[in-house]
Amino acid sequence: MVSPKDQQLAWVRAILAHLGGISANELAQRAKIAPSTIQRPLNEPDWPNALSGTTMAKIAAVAGLQPLEFPPRSGGLGEPEATPFQYDQDANAIGSNLDRAVRELCRGRNGRDPWVMRSRMLEMSGILPGDILIVDLNLQPRPKDIVCAQMYQWPLMKAETVFRVYEPPYLLTNSGSTSRPVPVDDQDVIIRGVVDGLIRPRQ
Rank of each mutant, 00 (worst) to 15 (best):
I22N: 06
G75R: 09
R118D: 07
C106N: 10
L122C: 06
G78I: 03
D90M: 01
S36V: 12
P141V: 04
R40A: 12
A24W: 09
G53S: 15
P141D: 06
L105T: 03
P114F: 01
A28W: 00
G64H: 11
E44S: 09
R142S: 08
M124E: 14
M117N: 06
N138E: 14
R112Y: 03
D46K: 13
T55C: 10
A24D: 13
A28S: 04
A60N: 11
P71A: 11
R103V: 01
M56H: 10
P114I: 01
N43K: 11
E123G: 09
G95N: 07
E81N: 10
L68F: 12
I38V: 11
S96I: 06
S23I: 02
A61W: 05
P45N: 03
P72S: 08
R107H: 13
R120M: 15
N43G: 09
D46S: 15
G21A: 11
I127S: 08
A60G: 10
I33V: 15
P48D: 01
R142P: 01
R30Q: 07
T54K: 13
A101P: 00
R118G: 07
L128V: 08
A31T: 02
R142I: 05
T55Y: 09
P129S: 03
L139T: 08
L139G: 09
G108P: 05
I22G: 05
A60R: 10
M121V: 13
L105M: 14
E69R: 07
I132M: 02
S96V: 07
P71Q: 12
G108T: 03
D46Q: 14
N138F: 09
G53R: 14
D46L: 13
A60F: 12
A82H: 03
M124Q: 15
R30D: 00
S74C: 08
A34F: 10
R100G: 06
M56E: 14
P143F: 05
I22C: 07
E69N: 07
R73L: 06
D90W: 00
A91N: 08
G20Y: 05
Q140P: 04
V135M: 06
V135C: 13
Q89N: 12
R112K: 13
Y87A: 04
R120W: 14
M121Y: 10
N138G: 14
E79C: 01
P84M: 05
Q86E: 14
G76Y: 00
G75N: 11
G21M: 14
S96P: 05
G108S: 03
P129M: 00
P129W: 02
